[in-house]
């Protein structure tokens, strides 16, 4: 009898979790660091500005070769035991290639654990979208779809082909 109950609970829990994850995976939501929800790239509050720029500073010091895109930068955190990371890499590469001024930086989460803690990355893949000066605009955990990525890009960008 206990076995039957545990089986029922396990199946219901797995179904609920799976459906929930399917819904939120790859969805870009405004970053938790942004206290004022409207993205304000020219924030005058020096504290705000410092917090924003710290995101890119932390990334740049952890990954010296990384370069910021003129319009936007995808910062993708990946790990070895992550099947959707590959799909996400291919997609973000493709969008970055087709869109002017958009760069894609992929970071191995295992090798940069202090950065992972600092930016509060919990899963791989997690994709941050930064604006031209390195503010974090939004982030998504899980593999995003192409239309989700394009919709989350800063509006000035156009896909060239």
């Amino acid at each position: 009898m206990t076995g039957l109950v545990i089986l029922g609970v396990a199946l219901v829990a797995a179904l609920a979790f799976g459906l929930y994850r399917q819904r939120v995976d790859g969805r870009f939501s405004p970053t938790m660091r942004e206290v004022d929800l409207a993205p304000t790239p020219t924030a005058e509050d020096p504290a705000d500005r410092a917090a924003d720029l710290a995101v890119w500073d932390a990334i740049a010091s952890a990954v010296p070769g990384a370069a910021l895109g003129e319009r936007a930068t995808f910062v993708q955190f990946s790990s070895a035991f992550c099947a959707p990371c590959r799909t996400t890499r291919v997609l973000l590469d493709d969008v970055a290639t087709r869109t002017d001024g958009v760069a894609h930086v992929e970071i191995d989460a295992e090798e940069h654990l202090s950065l992972v803690r600092e930016l509060d990355i919990r899963r791989t893949p997690t994709t941050l979208i930064l604006d031209g000066i390195g503010n974090e605009l939004t982030r998504a955990a899980g593999a995003p779809r192409r239309e989700q990525v394009l919709a989350a890009l800063p509006s000035s960008s156009q896909e060239t082909t």
Binding site: A10, A14, L15, S79, A109, L113, T124
Partner: peptide, 26 residues
């Protein structure tokens, strides 16, 4: 029961629970 949850997520949603826990564990 835990194994049922993980296998169900993998079979039905192609979702790898162990892989997800890996980064949190690290």
């Amino acid at each position: 029961g835990f194994a049922v949850v993980a296998a169900f997520l993998n079979a039905v949603f192609a979702f790898c629970l162990g892989c997800e826990m890996y980064l949190l564990g690290l």
